[in-house]
């Protein structure tokens, strides 16, 4: 495990070293949150609630999105695609190292920095908007939410890892990854709560792992589901995680076998 811990520490140093990239990333995320906040504020207008969400809950949903984006939606997909396409992955494959563990360590470093930044941003936004947030009082809710978010983050990581591994077979795997990320934003509830969607579409999405990444964890946080239901959802999340982990490992292992180690 020590190697992954050292990789995490080095990646942390490198993330902090790339100051402009970090600042640009944060500004981009901040702009999305401000847009969503303005959009939902306009929709709610003078009403006390909208689609079953009070003003405080909706504001919390939007602000929680900022933290969840930083924690859940930061995989190493593009890095994997780039390293396979350029052949740089060779240098990892010949070392006594599990590439996915290494990538996960790097991802954790990225998450550490981005989550810290997003909490700071959310604090500023909460202060600017008067601080009317929904914060659960029951410690069990925090525990369930934390568990759900960790599982979400791992589901995203391995799902993205699996799609990025297509780069072993094609030099055009950036396409599927781009589509995945775009669809993900919508299907995970990262633009709006999925309650907005027609029931049939929502039911269809619930058959996929996407709603488990943002929508369900935030509903757990907002105590929109009972503890029993939250536990059931976490169980389903664990099943999805097992499925995407197995899928990612299988695709990656097959990819490595058919890898042509491009370039001299």
């Amino acid at each position: 495990m020590k190697k992954y811990w050292v990789a995490y520490q080095i990646a942390l140093q490198e993330t902090l070293q790339r100051r402009s990239t970090l600042i640009m990333d944060r500004l981009g995320g901040f702009a999305i949150v401000v847009s969503l906040y303005s959009f939902w504020t306009a929709l709610i207008g003078d009403k006390t609630s909208f689609l079953g969400y009070t003003r405080a809950e909706m504001l919390t949903y939007v602000l929680a999105l900022n933290i969840l984006r930083s924690f859940v939606f930061t995989g190493r997909g593009w890095q994997l695609v780039g390293e396979i396409s350029s052949g740089k992955i060779s240098s990892y494959l010949i070392r006594p190292l599990h590439y996915y563990g290494y990538a996960l360590a790097l991802d954790m470093a990225q998450k550490t920095v981005h989550v810290a930044a997003s909490i700071f941003e959310v604090a500023i936004l909460a202060w600017l908007t008067g601080g009317a947030l929904f914060l659960p009082h029951d410690p069990a809710t925090w525990l369930l939410f934390g568990t759900a978010v960790v599982l979400s983050s791992l589901i995203f990581f391995f799902l993205e890892f699996m799609i990025s591994s297509l780069a072993f077979w094609t030099s055009e795997s950036g396409g599927p990854l781009f589509c995945f990320e775009l669809f993900l934003q919508f299907a995970a509830g990262a633009f709006f709560p999925l309650d907005v969607l027609p029931l049939a579409l929502r039911k269809a999405l619930e058959m996929t792992p996407f709603p488990y990444m943002v929508y369900f964890p935030v509903r757990v946080f907002l105590e929109k589901v009972s503890s029993a239901e939250a536990l059931r959802l976490i169980g389903l999340e664990a099943l999805w995680l097992a499925a995407v982990f197995t899928g990612a490992m299988t695709v990656f292992a097959r990819g490595v076998r058919s890898y042509s180690a491009e370039g001299g």
């Binding site: 190697k3 050292v6 140093q13 010949i94």
Partner: peptide, 29 residues
């Protein structure tokens, strides 16, 4: 074993090479 490819790098770009050496220390135990 080790494979060195003149046109490839295993070094981390933004930080000193010493950090990559420390990582390799951990990787190779």
């Amino acid at each position: 074993i080790s494979l060195v490819m003149g046109q490839r790098s295993q070094l981390w770009w933004e930080i000193p090479a010493y950090e990559t050496f420390k990582l390799n220390q951990a990787i190779y135990g």
